[in-house]
Design a protein around this nucleic acid. Sequence first.
DNA 1: CAAAAATATTAAGAAAATCTTAAGATTTTT
DNA 2: AAAAATCTTAAGATTTTCTTAATATTTTTG
Lengths: 230, 230
Amino acid sequence: MADYNILVVDDEKEIREAIAIYLKNEGLNVITAEDGVEAIEKLNENTIHLIILDVMMPRQDGIQTTLKIREKKNIPIIILSAKSEDMDKIHGLQVGADDYVTKPFNPLELIARVKSQLRRYLTLGMYEGCEKVINLNGLTLDPSAKEVTVNGDPVKLTPIEYKIVELLMTNAGRVFSINEIYERVWNEPGYNAENTVAVHIRKIREKIEIDPKNPRYLKVVWGIGYKIEK
Amino acid sequence: MADYNILVVDDEKEIREAIAIYLKNEGLNVITAEDGVEAIEKLNENTIHLIILDVMMPRQDGIQTTLKIREKKNIPIIILSAKSEDMDKIHGLQVGADDYVTKPFNPLELIARVKSQLRRYLTLGMYEGCEKVINLNGLTLDPSAKEVTVNGDPVKLTPIEYKIVELLMTNAGRVFSINEIYERVWNEPGYNAENTVAVHIRKIREKIEIDPKNPRYLKVVWGIGYKIEK
DNA sequence: CAAAAATATTAAGAAAATCTTAAGATTTTT
DNA sequence: AAAAATCTTAAGATTTTCTTAATATTTTTG
């Protein structure tokens, strides 16, 4: 099971990290948030396929957050809760959650439930909505097909190249430093990453730009990083 | 929430009836069966929208029954069980159940979970188009006949080969990693699955492609996985 | 304007992913 | 119980991708 992005929202760092370990062990990508407000932000910045949401959180609780998410997106939500009160579960499910797991829980059960939901969503063709094709001035990105096109012509990118483009396009207009790019694409701290990233940028430009020397899409912001214009 | 048929399968009459009362109270239609074998019969005779399935049953247990149902239908299955052992839950979910509720349970929670599943299914018109013939550039798949054709000529695929093609065709355009293919087709975690899948891909290409070396349908996306173009 | 810093370019070797073939194991059918 | 069909494993070939290093260019700064 690969290339699904799971957003884990919990105010306790240990829980977030523990869950992350199990998810990563299944080959799933993990993005974390500390509370509901941050979760909504991350949801806008990334392609998220499933949310694990703690109920008890400062600022905005899980139920409120579920309601807000449901206003926009229809992706699966699994609520985590210390309350094992039946009425809480029922309320959570009524409000639009897809599953409800009470703490303490067996991480393996949580994983099994995550996978069950992902399977469902995929077979229901549900990700077509949340994996929308992005089109920026003729440059398009289709997350489900992992395909990028320029004026309709498909561009053959390598996995790393694709990930870089995906990062820049799903956050179009925002500048990413070389280190930030390295960390988010490679998922590891980037020490001497400058050149590595530069080479990949070059390759990408060769593929998506008419004139790689005068890039129209993938622009450098001197001293700061790279971006793709909105 | 009306006009949906729920199949309740449990060997204890009292439980069947108790569940039925709550379901009917929600305006849902209830059909009952005493065991897995009878359940499969009822499934063939009726339009069923969701199954509530007890694990412990004579003749054929809930897990076996789930597997049999999944061979044919993709409707939501909620397993009921006296066992609260985590491993049982995990197993049930792995095998294709959508939810797992342990006895004793609050009937209202069960209802909430039923409604949660139905909501998901309904939003996508799942109960209609899932048996339609898919035609992608001359490659067709008939899910009900389990048949694949290329330009009208039937192709004889083995069960595993068929499942792979079905996965790729029902999600045409989407890229599946080798692991994802393994997990979805074999229903078990894929550790050293690369080669196994590769060999099957080869066999499939031999059967559906004119020139297996230059596949027209079953394409590789390097470093990511395989797909069949929309 | 010259020096420094940041980014760009190229090519080559290393690493990783996929493909292929064939043999043996398993399952299903006859 | 034998035969046929199917599946898995292994090993090596092939193809593609990644990183590194050396050097060049552009932009900024003093």
